[in-house]
């Protein structure tokens, strides 16, 4: 008695449908997260010249760190370079929308904030922008996560999340770690 040569094709077709179905379920969950609670990778294609960003414009030394603008929007600007963050500590308010903007004047860097979904590459030539909201106060580690040269392991910063009551901008709207 020979076995039915089509039976294995049938079982494999059943299995293939099940697997495509499983993949589609994951795809659905990912797409839902990206559309509904807006959990997307940071992707603003915004250019900045790495050779002049320290001389004029948004990323000069005075503008770095956390700043609250006239409309009350919180923006934190950080320059990542071999082998440090400027500034190395930033303060942000709890339960408020915060926008981080990172640039690099030299080579590729990257960063994450431990325990959050904040994660971006910092590519020279581009502004990397991440919107987020922190729901717990505390000091969080923000290490450089992309190899940027031999001093890479020393490149670490901190994000300090404080309750809104303790988040007190000065007359220029600026908030620094020293006062907190």
């Amino acid at each position: 008695m020979a076995i039915d040569p089509l039976s294995n094709a049938r079982s494999e077709r059943r299995w293939a449908f099940a697997m495509v179905g499983a993949a589609m379920m994951m795809l659905f969950a990912i797409v839902w997260a990206s559309l509904s609670p807006h959990m997307n990778p940071p992707s603003n294609i915004e250019n900045v010249d790495p050779n002049t960003l320290h001389i004029a414009g948004e990323f000069t030394e005075d503008n770095l760190g956390t700043q609250v603008d006239a409309k009350g929007r919180v923006t934190t600007r950080i320059v990542t370079s071999q082998f440090s963050f400027a500034p190395e500590c930033v303060v942000v308010p709890q339960d408020m929308q915060v926008t981080f903007r990172f640039v690099s004047p030299d080579v590729i860097h990257g960063l994450l904030v431990v325990g959050t979904n904040i994660n971006t590459m910092v590519v020279p030539g581009y502004v990397s922008q991440v919107h987020t909201m922190f729901d717990k106060p505390g000091d969080m580690l923000m290490p450089c996560h992309e190899f940027c040269g031999l001093g890479h392991s020393q490149m670490v910063a901190h994000v300090r999340v404080v309750p809104i009551a303790d988040f007190k901008p000065d007359e220029n709207g600026r908030v620094a770690c020293a006062e907190h």
């Binding site: 997260a33 609670p37 959990m39 979904n117 904040i118 987020t132």
Partner: peptide
Amino acid sequence: AIIYLFVFLPRGPVG
């Protein structure tokens, strides 16, 4: 699904 529900979603929105 465990990672999605119990790690990813609680870590909050980004974009």
